[in-house]
Design a protein around this nucleic acid. Sequence first.
DNA 1: CTCCCGATAT
DNA 2: ATATCAGGAG
Length: 214
Amino acid sequence: MNRTQITELFEIFESVRSNPRSELVYHNSFELLCAVVLSAQATDASVNKVTPVLFARAPDPQTMARMETAAIEEIISSIGLYRAKAGYLKGLSEKLVSDFGGEVPQSENELVSLPGVGLKTARVVLNVAFGRPTIAVDTHIFRVADRIGLSHAKTPNQMSDVLAKRIPERFLKNAHHHLILHGRYVCRAQRPKCHECPVTHLCAFFKKSKYVTK
DNA sequence: CTCCCGATAT
DNA sequence: ATATCAGGAG
């Protein structure tokens, strides 16, 4: 995909009004950080089901750091990978208090130093909570970018760097959100809705696809 | 690379 | 019945 096509792609995404059904619910950067950690291999709806209970019990890192891991597990047990995630939440809360004054840090290196926070989660927090032009490559973006032909990088982390260089700067801040929503509701993993897709004329996957009809 | 691991969509 | 879901640690 060349520069002109990439520009056209994001101009179309910016002009299309998407209508998300569910997104992570949060009220501050700490809640967003926790919600994104919980969202690994889980749907937003599943996460939104437990976070109100969790944040009512522990609205800040100081309180969450003092909770028993078992108590956190009990609250989030309806989410997959809940034992690992309960440990992450307690561990990252403890570190926020001990190393960052109880505040969510605003640099990639500091965020990644928190337990349970990898590059993808760090970049989501930087983008969504702090408005920075980062590209967090999750499973949706990894699939969408590969199909369209934006990048065929082998791993999400590699793709993240490729996209950051390849996407024009003025689209960078919102590109993350556009690609995610497109991946969730149009370019789905199973049965992609190519018949509703506004960018099929730019898509390598569509051109050699069997999903030409609905 | 494997493990983690419940809910939901298809 | 199985593929997938805002991944990260060991």
